[in-house]
Structures are given as structure tokens and as C-alpha cells.
């Protein structure tokens, strides 16, 4: 089969998964912006959000036939609870793994070790509490695979559409928040110059917590979206986590619009790449991209900095 025949289908798949990478990547980039710290436990925040959303929809699914309104309501509820769980996990993570280090003025390496420790702990805690098998979103929630429409012959399923539209809405919302609200301005001021921000009356500690929570809310909602396609499991965080991190670096770590661009580009590239290298090499393509950017353009496509629209 020629690439040209598959191009549009690969593009659809790439855009859908890329938009989810983008949502997760924002958490890495926001935290990096204010703290110059890569929060490697962010993947576990994502995982907790996924479980939260999946369990919520499973528990609340009515027996028997489900109406369209109920279906939409449940998806929104899953997203909301997923986001909430992600936000809580991020809050707890900042409190236990990072704040004590910041209080003591710890060196950078200590944060990295703490992050990896927290990540292993969180993942295994989930394995113990939620079981080692993957958990899926109820099959009856909506008819995932129904084709909604097609673009140039590529089919777009209902699930694809839901994931993409929700992710896009989250991205726009976050962009508005960072560029147009007082909280967003506070975050940008801390990213640009935290000492001076505090001289303006900005409570930097509070902004740091809010930034973690914001990233966690997004990752949690993103986790639910991801679980719609691939189920939830205690080890689910690692691969999308590293890919979202790659997306953030690709766009320019610390740069919000860069993370969005990076996520979309990565989603597309790995899907085009798997056509040539085989589906079993999908993840290889993503990490090849990471290595290449670090070699060729380490500051990313849009450059570092939590810049103007940040």
C-alpha cells in the first residue's frame, strides 16, 4: 500500500493522539517555566487522572440502554473527575516531593531523584490499589467506533472526534488562561523573573502550587481521553509521559504554544514514521525525534521561555 493512500488516515490518527500529547505536555512545560524543573512524575499524575475518570464512568453507568444525553454527561463527568484526580495528585506531589527540597535550597539533581522516586512510588501504589490488570471505559458509554464522517477517505470515528475536540478545547482554554487572566500573568511573571514578581506582591509559592495543579488538571483530563483509546493501567503513564515530554522539548520547553505544536507534530511524525518502519516501531519514532531535536535544535521549534502568550 502506498503512503499516499494511507496519508489521510495516518494524519487523522496523528492529530488525535497528538492533541492528547499536547494536553499532557502543557504540564511539563508550565512547571518547567516557573521552576526550571522537569517534573518526571507528571506521567503518574496523568495515570491517576485516567483511573479517576474510568472508575467514575464505570460506577455511574446506568444499566440497560443509555441515552445520548446520559452518554455526553458521563463523558464530561469522567473528564471532570479525571481532571480533579490529576489536580489532586499534582498538588500532593508538589507538597511531598518538591516543596521540602525547595525549602532547603536543594541542588537540581535532588529534584530529579525525588521525581523518579515519586514516580515509582505512585505507579506501584496504583498497581497495588487498582490492580495489575488494565481497566477499560465501559463499552456501553457510547458507540466509539461509529464513523462520524470521513476526510479524503480517512474515517473519523466518534471516539476520535470526542478526543480531538475535547483536547482542542482544553488547549484553547489554557492558552486563554495563561495569556489573559491575572493568574496567567502571575505565572508568566514568575517564569520570567520570580524575585521581581515577589516584589510586585505575587505570592510565588502560591503560583508554583497553582501551576502544578493546573498541569495536573490537564494531565488528568488527558488521562481520561487516553484511557478512552487505550484503557487505564498502573504502568500506562510512562510511554505517553515520555512522549509528552518529547513534545514539550520539541516545541521549546517552557513555551506553552510550543508544547501544543510539539504534541501535534510528534503525533503526526510517529504515525507517518510507523508506516515506513512498521507499527511495532511507533514508540521508536517518537524517541528518535527526541534524540534528533536534542542534537539539532535543543531549544525546540519555538524556543524556550514562558513567553508572551506563553
Amino acid at each position: 500500500m502506498a503512503f499516499a493512500d494511507q496519508f489521510w488516515q495516518l494524519t487523522v490518527t496523528g492529530l488525535v493522539i497528538g492533541s492528547v500529547y499536547a494536553v499532557i505536555a502543557l504540564g511539563y512545560t508550565l512547571v518547567y517555566g516557573v521552576l526550571q524543573l522537569i517534573n518526571f512524575a507528571h506521567s503518574e499524575v496523568f495515570m491517576f487522572g485516567a483511573f479517576g475518570g474510568v472508575f467514575a464512568t464505570r460506577a455511574l453507568l446506568p444499566s440497560g440502554n443509555i441515552s445520548a444525553t446520559e452518554s455526553i454527561g458521563l463523558v464530561l463527568l469522567g473528564l471532570g473527575i479525571g481532571a480533579l484526580c490529576g489536580g489532586l495528585a499534582a498538588f500532593a506531589l508538589e507538597r511531598t516531593a518538591y516543596r521540602p527540597l525547595r525549602r532547603r535550597g536543594a541542588p537540581r539533581l535532588a529534584y530529579l531523584i525525588s521525581a523518579i522516586g515519586a514516580s515509582l512510588f505512585a505507579s506501584n501504589l496504583a498497581g497495588k490499589e487498582f490492580g495489575r490488570d488494565s481497566v477499560n471505559i465501559p463499552k456501553d458509554l457510547f458507540d466509539y467506533n461509529t464513523q462520524v464522517f470521513s476526510v479524503f477517505g480517512a474515517r473519523v470515528s466518534k471516539q476520535d472526534l470526542v478526543v480531538f475536540v475535547v483536547a482542542l478545547a482544553l488547549l484553547l482554554l489554557l492558552d486563554r488562561l495563561v495569556s489573559g487572566t491575572r493568574l496567567g500573568q502571575g505565572i508568566r511573571s514568575v517564569a520570567q523573573d520570580s524575585d521581581t514578581a515577589s516584589l510586585m506582591g505575587v505570592n510565588v509559592e502560591r503560583i508554583i502550587v497553582m501551576t502544578f495543579v493546573l498541569g495536573g488538571l490537564l494531565a488528568g483530563a488527558g488521562g481520561f481521553l487516553y484511557a478512552m483509546k487505550f484503557n487505564a493501567s498502573f504502568t500506562m503513564g510512562f510511554i505517553p509521559g515520555v512522549k509528552a515530554f518529547t513534545a514539550a522539548v520539541l516545541g521549546g520547553i517552557g513555551n506553552v504554544r510550543g508544547a501544543v505544536l510539539g504534541g501535534i507534530v510528534l503525533g503526526l511524525v510517529e504515525n507517518y514514521g510507523q508506516f515506513f518502519l512498521g507499527a511495532q516501531n511507533l514508540d521508536v519514532v517518537a524517541f528518535l525525534v527526541l534524540v534528533l531535536i536534542l542534537l539539532v535544535r535543543p531549544s525546540g521549534l519555538l524556543g524556550e521561555r514562558l513567553g508572551r502568550a506563553a
Partner: peptide
């Protein structure tokens, strides 16, 4: 120490953050 990637108006808004 002006905020380099904020406009003049935004910098002034920062002064009235509270």
C-alpha cells in the same frame, strides 16, 4: 528587572497585581 516578555501595559499591571 522589567518583565522582558510582557508589554509596557502588562508590566504596569504587574505593579498593581494585588
Amino acid at each position: 528587572r522589567v518583565f522582558p516578555q510582557m508589554s509596557i501595559v502588562e508590566n504596569l499591571e504587574m505593579g498593581a497585581y494585588r
